[in-house]
Measured scan of single mutants.
Amino acid sequence: MGFKLLSKLLVYLTASIMAIASPLAFSVDSSGEYPTVSEIPVGEVRLYQIADGVWSHIATQSFDGAVYPSNGLIVRDGDELLLIDTAWGAKNTAALLAEIEKQIGLPVTRAVSTHFHDDRVGGVDVLRAAGVATYASPSTRRLAEVEGNEIPTHSLEGLSSSGDAVRFGPVELFYPGAAHSTDNLIVYVPSASVLYGGCAIYELSRTSAGNVADADLAEWPTSIERIQQHYPEAQFVIPGHGLPGGLDLLKHTTNVVKAHTNRSVVE
Rank of each mutant, 00 (worst) to 15 (best):
D164A: 13
I50K: 04
S113M: 04
A192I: 07
K102D: 13
S62N: 07
I74S: 04
H260A: 14
S181E: 01
G148F: 06
H252K: 05
A218V: 13
D183K: 01
S56C: 15
R76T: 09
G158Y: 07
V265N: 11
G43I: 04
G242Q: 02
F116C: 04
D214S: 08
E101C: 04
A59C: 06
T261A: 11
V54C: 02
H180Q: 05
K91S: 15
D79Q: 10
A59N: 10
L97W: 01
A165F: 13
L243W: 08
Y34E: 09
S16L: 11
A129H: 11
S264M: 11
D119R: 01
G43E: 08
L24M: 14
G242D: 06
L82Q: 00
V257R: 02
A19Q: 15
V171G: 02
R120T: 02
I50A: 05
E157C: 07
S31E: 09
V212P: 01
I186R: 01
G177P: 00
D52M: 08
V121A: 04
D77E: 09
V257D: 01
S205M: 08
P190E: 12
D248G: 12
G89E: 00
F174R: 02
P152V: 02
S7G: 07
A130S: 11
S137G: 05
R128H: 12
T36M: 12
S137P: 07
K4F: 06
A178F: 07
R76Q: 11
S191E: 13
T207E: 15
T254S: 11
N184P: 01
H154C: 06
L159K: 04
T109F: 08
Y135V: 02
E157Q: 13
A192P: 06
E39I: 11
I84D: 00
L10F: 15
A129W: 08
I186C: 02
G245Q: 04
A218L: 14
R226P: 05
S193M: 12
H252M: 04
P190V: 06
E233Q: 12
E44R: 13
R142L: 14
P239M: 01
N92Y: 03
L106E: 06
R46I: 12
S22K: 12
E267N: 09
I186P: 01
P152K: 02
P190K: 09
G89W: 01
E267V: 05
I17H: 07
A213T: 11
V108T: 06
P35E: 08
A95G: 09
E219W: 05
R226V: 08
I238C: 03
A21Q: 14
F174H: 04
D52W: 08
N149F: 15
Y188C: 04
I50P: 05
A133W: 08
R142K: 14
K8R: 10
T182R: 13
G177K: 03
V237A: 04
Y48W: 15
T134M: 05
V146L: 13
A200S: 06
G43Q: 05
I201F: 07
S264W: 08
Y202I: 15
P41G: 15
G123M: 05
V166F: 07
Q49Y: 15
E225T: 11
Y135M: 03
V75F: 04
A209R: 10
G89F: 02
V237T: 04
L83E: 00
A192D: 06
Q61D: 04
G246R: 10
S161Y: 13
T140D: 04
A59I: 07
S160T: 13
T153Q: 13
A66Y: 15
N211I: 06
E80A: 10
N262T: 12
I74C: 02
L247T: 15
V194W: 00
H252Y: 06
L5H: 15
G78R: 09
G163Q: 06
L173C: 02
V42G: 14
L5A: 15
K258L: 12
S205E: 14
E101Q: 14
K251D: 14
A66M: 15
I84W: 00
Q229V: 13
A234Y: 03
K102F: 03
Y68W: 03
L106S: 10
L81G: 02
N71G: 03
N149V: 09
I227C: 02
K251Y: 11
D119Y: 03
L6A: 14
V121I: 08
L106V: 11
W88C: 01
V132H: 00
A209C: 04
T253H: 02
S205H: 09
A136K: 04
I84M: 07
A215T: 06
A133E: 13
Y196E: 03
E150H: 03
N184I: 05
G163R: 05
P23Q: 13
I50E: 04
A130I: 08
A200W: 03
A95T: 10
L159Y: 03
G122H: 08
F236W: 12
I58H: 12
S27T: 11
V67G: 10
S139E: 13
L156H: 05
R141W: 04
L156N: 02
M18K: 12
I58F: 10
P170R: 05
Y34H: 09
P107V: 13
F174I: 05
L6H: 08
Y135C: 05
L127V: 02
V121S: 00
H241L: 02
A15T: 11
H57W: 03
N255Q: 12
L97A: 00
L185G: 03
G197M: 01
S30K: 15
D164I: 06
S7A: 09
E33K: 12
V187E: 05
V42C: 08
G242H: 06
P138W: 08
G245C: 05
A15K: 07
P35N: 07
A59E: 08
L13W: 10
G198R: 04
A129L: 11
V237M: 03
T114S: 07
S223A: 10
P170D: 02
S264D: 13
Q228F: 05
H260Y: 09
V212N: 07
L82S: 01
R226Q: 08
V67S: 15
V108M: 01
E39L: 13
S162K: 14
S161T: 13
T109S: 13
S191H: 14
Q61W: 08
A66F: 15
I227T: 09
L173Y: 01
V11K: 08
R120Y: 02
H154P: 05
L243E: 15
S264P: 12
K258V: 13
V54N: 04
E39H: 11
S137W: 03
F236P: 04
A90C: 03
G72A: 03
K102S: 13
V67K: 15
L5S: 15
L82K: 00
A259V: 10
S56L: 15
A98G: 12
S7E: 09
I20E: 15
A259N: 11
L81I: 12
E172S: 03
E150G: 05
A15V: 08
G240K: 03
E39D: 12
H180N: 02
Q229F: 11
Y135F: 11
S161C: 07
L24G: 09
T254K: 12
S70H: 03
G78W: 06
D164H: 10
T222H: 14
S223D: 01
G2F: 15
D77K: 03
A19K: 15
D183G: 02
G163Y: 05
T109H: 12
T140N: 05
G148D: 08
